[in-house]
Design a protein around this nucleic acid. Structure first.
Length: 254
DNA sequence: ATGGTCCCCTGACCGC
DNA sequence: TGCGGTCAGGGGACCA
């Protein structure tokens, strides 16, 4: 499931291939994603070029002169750049074709992803997002302040995209483990000092995952079809029952 | 405002 | 080997 490192890996993989090339076609084979793919999307894209590809939270924004294509990979989505067309396989729902014959193809078996249009780069879905975990606004003091009075589990708190973006199940588990915080502890009952360790652990975990090209759990591949290798570095995610890397006792589920 | 539940969907997994 | 049931999982919508 693509979280921040996987989305960032995707962005870096396709960025050199899709910018400043005239868009000639949009083919939508399946409109039924998380939200319907907008009918008028082709009118926004065809004849334009992408001037850049940005990431905000787990969203990719493909910028054009008139607005941005907004792509979320959901649980099972991946984008692949193809230098020439190749036969369409199952779950390959959408192609953006360029003048040189190359194309960008979206595959998403579970269709929890979304492809939307954001006029002027703004969209309702982007408006309530918290700070980027690798940016300056995210730090221990921030987490401490936002968590006061909150009774939900710290893991759910960390996965709340209005608190901090990009952290999902995998990296929440890993960061909490690295910080030595139990995932079910109430967010409001964790000390300032521990939140400082947690903020650091989130940053370190995400940086390491990006450096490894993301985590290929199930079937994540980057923009050129290559898997990521961070799965080899996961210490606790999906390892319920395995021995704890620190104390040797069996890890609990979730 | 907060927190809990439901739902979208497919593939993996399990028991028979 | 085949088949039906169950469940995960991002995150918005909805409800108490």
């Amino acid at each position: 499931m693509p979280e921040l490192p996987e989305v960032e890996t995707t962005r870096r993989g396709i960025l050199p291939h899709v910018c400043n090339k005239p868009i000639t076609t949009l083919v939508v084979r399946e409109h039924r994603l998380r939200w319907p793919v907008p009918k008028g999307l082709g009118r926004h894209l065809v004849g334009q070029t992408f001037s850049g590809v940005r990431r905000r939270a787990k969203y990719l924004l493909f910028d054009t002169a008139g607005g941005s294509l907004l792509v979320h990979l959901g649980m099972s989505g991946s984008l692949q750049f193809l230098s020439a067309p190749r036969p369409v396989q199952a779950h390959e729902h959408l192609d953006i074709g360029f003048a040189d014959g190359s194309l960008l193809r979206l595959r998403d078996p579970r269709r929890f992803g979304s492809v939307l249009w954001a006029p002027a780069g703004a969209h309702r879905l982007l408006s309530r997002l918290g700070p980027e975990p690798l940016g300056e606004a995210f730090h221990g003091e921030y987490l401490y302040a936002r968590s006061r009075g909150r009774r939900l589990a710290v893991k759910a708190f960390l996965m709340d995209q209005s608190i901090v973006v990009g952290v999902g199940n995998i990296y929440a588990s890993e960061a909490l483990f690295r910080a030595g915080i139990h995932p079910r502890r109430a967010a409001g009952r964790i000390s300032r000092q521990r939140y400082q360790r947690l903020a650091l652990a989130v940053r370190e975990t995400l940086h390491a995952a990006i450096a490894a090209g993301g985590t290929s759990f199930r079937d994540f591949v980057d923009g050129s079809g290559k898997p990521g290798y961070f799965i080899q570095e996961l210490r606790v995610y999906d390892r319920g029952g395995d021995p704890c890397p620190v104390c040797g006792r069996p890890l609990a589920q979730g």
